[in-house]
Nucleic acid binder design. Structure first.
Length: 455
RNA sequence: GUGGUUGUAGCUCAGUUGGUUAGAGCAUCAGAUUGUGGUUCUGAGGGUCGUGGGUUCGAGACCCAUCAUCCACCCCA
């Protein structure tokens, strides 16, 4: 006998949790469809080579790899040994593993587009809501299996796509009743900054460091930059850059003064203000030049969403990528996309108690079981109610009333229908509202038309 | 991958410098109550003390390892 358990960082979801998660999924899906996106699902596993090299060095380490079958087969033993030796050196080997669990939804989507670009109508707008897996160490808001909900559009360079994505973020979080901050920045601005601070190869070091500003503070960021070899004059520039505060327009114009000599930076600034002008009243939408985003395939505007009410990592992120399918041999399909982290959204909604009370949709009516013949009669009436789309169940055995009432309480069932010996003989039934404690006896033939209030 | 925290009944947790047969509340089940629940009262069941080693006359407690948990770092949703 083994003690039952589930792998680290994974969870079972009971009925209540599934319902609440369903509420989040539905909210997100409704908005996705409202904006004209179509669903897509891809396999849980991809060929390993589809995934490796797409998420940076750190990302590669976090990909869950699947061991090949048949390694122990005598005819494979030499190959298996060799493959294992390669694995010990940190090299992937097809003879050991050639498949892996999906790490996000964007790369599988790019793979799908590359495979099917001949059949798709562009711009192709898809949404996808599926689990992804990361071999990370679990902590607050971080799981090894979690759901992402992505929208992406490919085959269009229009900034209207980014405008709409801000709209999607805004609408979803508004519907969920959450106060969030939608931060927007441009990779173009970041690379212009990097160009002034030693060149494009400095981009990663710089962005990783400044991204931590609100977390570790200016001094620590400067320390980190210095340790990466940033010179004092460049450091001063970055400090001025990070010091830009104020309302969005002011920030943008001050950044223009600072980096305006760079055409690339001007482009980035212009794109941000273009998107902002479509959302004049959107609360929490702000330009944030410290925003970096880890994934190295972003090329234009980038987004990130954080809760203003709870301490939690980002609830979503995304941006523009100009050549994602190029990784799969199909160039010139630009795109943009954003992602929602359902599990983190769940944790925040739970912490703030923002789930609506009526998201519980269990059984509405419990038929009591009062004996063999009584139950048989009750069953027929129950089926009639089910035909009217009322959620019913009948107690599984003829237990004491006490027990059946307690069962109804536990499952928060609002109504009981009792057909006992007397009722059966008289052609009646008792309908009881369990929340009010009121009951009435009605002719059983009126049950099928009975209105069960508020359940 | 690095560092720390916690792990005792189904759940939440007590358990003294190592000392007899490991406790409480809630939950469960039974009864008080053979057709009316949520309250109350009585009683019962339920523990390899995460797992495996070690120290000791003696370990739930101390040491080592391991697994899980939560938290931080790295990174990220």
């Amino acid at each position: 006998m083994v003690k039952p358990s589930i792998p680290q960082g994974t969870r079972d979801f009971g009925p209540e949790v599934v319902r609440k998660r369903g509420y989040i999924f539905k909210t997100i899906r409704d908005v996705f469809e409202l904006y004209g996106y179509q669903p897509l699902e891809t396999p849980a596993m991809e060929n390993l080579e589809t995934l490796t090299g797409k998420y940076g060095e750190e990302g590669d380490k976090l990909i869950f790899k699947i061991l090949n079958n048949g390694l122990q087969d005598p005819k494979n033993r030499d190959k298996s040994r060799e493959a294992f030796d390669n694995a010990l050196e940190g090299k992937a080997d097809r003879n050991l593993t050639e498949r892996a669990l999906r790490y996000d939804l964007t790369i599988p989507f790019a793979r799908y587009v590359a495979m099917n670009h001949g059949q798709l109508t562009f711009p192709y707008k898809r949404y996808q809501m599926q689990p992804v897996w990361r071999a990370d160490r679990p902590q607050k808001g971080r799981y090894r299996e979690f759901y992402q909900c992505d929208v992406d559009v490919v085959g269009s360079r229009s900034l209207l796509n980014e405008v709409e994505m801000v709209g999607i973020y805004g609408d979803v979080f508004e519907r969920l009743g959450m106060k969030v901050e939608i931060r927007i920045n441009s990779r173009k601005i970041l690379s212009a900054l990097a160009a002034l601070c030693g060149g494009p190869h400095r981009m990663t070091d710089i962005t990783v460091a400044i991204d931590k500003l609100d977390k570790i503070g200016l001094e620590k960021v400067k320390e980190e930059l210095t340790s990466k070899g940033i010179e004092p004059a460049q450091l001063a520039l970055i400090e001025t850059y990070l010091g830009i505060e104020g309302p969005n327009e002011e920030k943008l114009s001050r950044l223009g003064n600072l980096l305006g000599d760079s055409p690339l930076a001007r482009e980035g600034i212009q794109e941000i203000s273009y998107v902002l002008q479509f959302h004049p009243g959107r609360e929490g939408l702000q330009a944030d030049f410290t925003l970096a985003r880890g994934l190295n395939y972003y090329t234009g505007l980038i987004f990130e969403v954080k809760s203003l009410q709870a301490r939690m990592g980002s609830l979503g992120g995304g941006g523009r990528y100009d050549d994602l399918t190029g990784l799969f041999g199909v160039p010139d399909i630009p795109g943009a996309g954003i992602s929602f982290g359902v599990d983190r959204i769940y944790d925040v909604l739970e912490e703030l108690q923002l789930f609506p009370g009526d998201s519980f949709t269990g059984t509405q009516v419990l038929f009591f079981n009062m004996g063999e013949a009584e139950a048989a009669a009750a069953f027929g009436h129950m089926q009639a109610l089910r035909g009217r789309n009322i959620r019913c169940e009948i107690y599984h055995e003829a237990a004491k009333l006490d027990k059946q009432f307690k069962y109804a309480d536990k499952k928060r069932i609002a109504h009981a229908v009792i057909i006992g010996t007397n009722e059966l003989a008289q052609g009646t039934c008792v309908v009881k509202d369990l929340r009010r404690g009121e009951q009435l006896t009605i002719p059983v033939n009126r049950l099928s038309g009975f209105v069960f209030e508020g359940s």
